[in-house]
Structures are given as structure tokens and as C-alpha cells.
Amino acid sequence: MTGQKKDRRVKRTKKMIRDALSELMKNKTFEEISVTDITTKADINRSTFYLHYEDKYDLLEQSEEEIIQEISNIAKRSIHSMDILNQDVIDHPLTFVVDIFQYIRENEVFMKAILGPKGPGSFRLKFKSVLSINLKRLKKAIKADPIVPEDYLISYITGAHISVMQQWLENGMKETPHDMALILSKITGMGPAYAAGLRKK
């Protein structure tokens, strides 16, 4: 077997295992799930599982890190492009936010499980950290001067973004990634009071 074919097979097997964990987390918490549950759901034997992971915690850690790295790369690519400085973010959402929503859609099974009520809190903390880092990069790129303490501002924005993403997943992702990014742009750019119709422009 060539190296390329082997890599594809490994990726396919790891995706099957991750998807099996995700399906199980619809009805059980992570702590309630065993390796046997995962291998049965993925229709593989335990030796195949242990070729790739030490235990279920290693599976969760690797899966979270893969997702976080991909999301981080998406954000970096966009923020390093200075086109962001010329965007009207109220009517035209930031490209990297659209791309993140698209990535969430492409990885729906895992994202729904990991951000859902049965998911561990570890991923939400990592996700919040990635968003915080990139908000700081964005602030530096546009030389913004916030009128409230930065830590509180970033905590508010990242928490709101993650909650909106969770709601989108729970709603069955009826809106497009572009529509969702635009919703966030309007809420973030003009404030919740304006978005709720309580304040005019």
C-alpha cells in the first residue's frame, strides 16, 4: 500500500471513530461512553481503535485539537489579508466568519455533539480562546481603541458568537453560513438593542 493510500485510509478510519463518538454523545455524556460503545458504533474492532488512540480521552483531545487548528487557520488566513480593513461589516460579513460557519456545517456531527448539552466544556473553552486570539489580531490590524475594558469586550463577543453557533446547530442549520455571519455582523456591529428593534440607527 502506498503512503498516500495509507494516509487516506487512516483519515477515513479516524473520521469513522470520531463520528461514532459524536453519534453516541447525542444521548450520553462523554463520561458515560466506553471504548466498546465507540468501536461497536463505528463497526471496528478494539485493536483498530488502539492503533490510533490511547483511550477515549486521547480520542477526544485529538479530535478537539484538529477542529481548533482548522478553525484557527481559517481565521488567520482572513485576518492576515488586509481586505478586512475595507469591509463594511454591517452589511457584508467578515469572510473568516462565513468560512467558520461553513466549516461547522461540514463537520456538523462532531460540532453538534461537542457544543451540545452532552458535550464536555473543554472544547468551548478552547474555541473561546481561538476566537479571543483572533479578535485581538483583528483589533491590532485595524488599530481599534475600545471604549470598555478589552477583556470584558472580548468575553462578551466570543460568548455571544459561540451561543449563536450552538443555536444554529440546534435549529438544524436552516440559514446559510453567509446569512449566519451577517446576523452576527449586525448584532456585533450595531449592538443587541438595535438588532432587537429597541434602538434606531
Rank of each mutant, 00 (worst) to 15 (best):
S185F: 08
T188K: 04
L60M: 13
P93Y: 03
I183K: 10
A181R: 05
M180N: 00
N45Y: 13
G197F: 01
S163R: 08
K143E: 09
R137V: 04
K56A: 13
N107M: 01
D145L: 12
P192N: 06
K112V: 04
S185A: 07
P146E: 08
A141E: 12
I71S: 02
Q166H: 03
E170V: 14
I154D: 08
S185W: 00
F127E: 13
P192H: 05
T48S: 10
T36W: 02
S81C: 10
S72W: 06
T13G: 11
T95N: 11
S63N: 08
E70K: 09
S47F: 11
S155W: 15
R77Q: 07
G119M: 15
I133H: 01
K143T: 05
S163N: 13
I79V: 05
S81L: 07
L138S: 08
D58T: 09
I154Q: 01
M165K: 02
G191E: 10
E66F: 06
D7H: 14
V109W: 03
G189V: 01
L94P: 03
H92C: 04
T29N: 15
M1E: 12
T158K: 13
P120V: 07
M190R: 09
K136T: 06
S63P: 11
H52C: 04
P192Y: 02
S81T: 10
I162S: 06
T2G: 13
I67G: 06
T158F: 01
L198A: 04
D43N: 14
I38M: 06
F101C: 05
T48K: 10
L135D: 02
D91H: 15
I157V: 10
A42Y: 03
S185D: 06
I68R: 11
I157A: 03
F96E: 05
K140I: 05
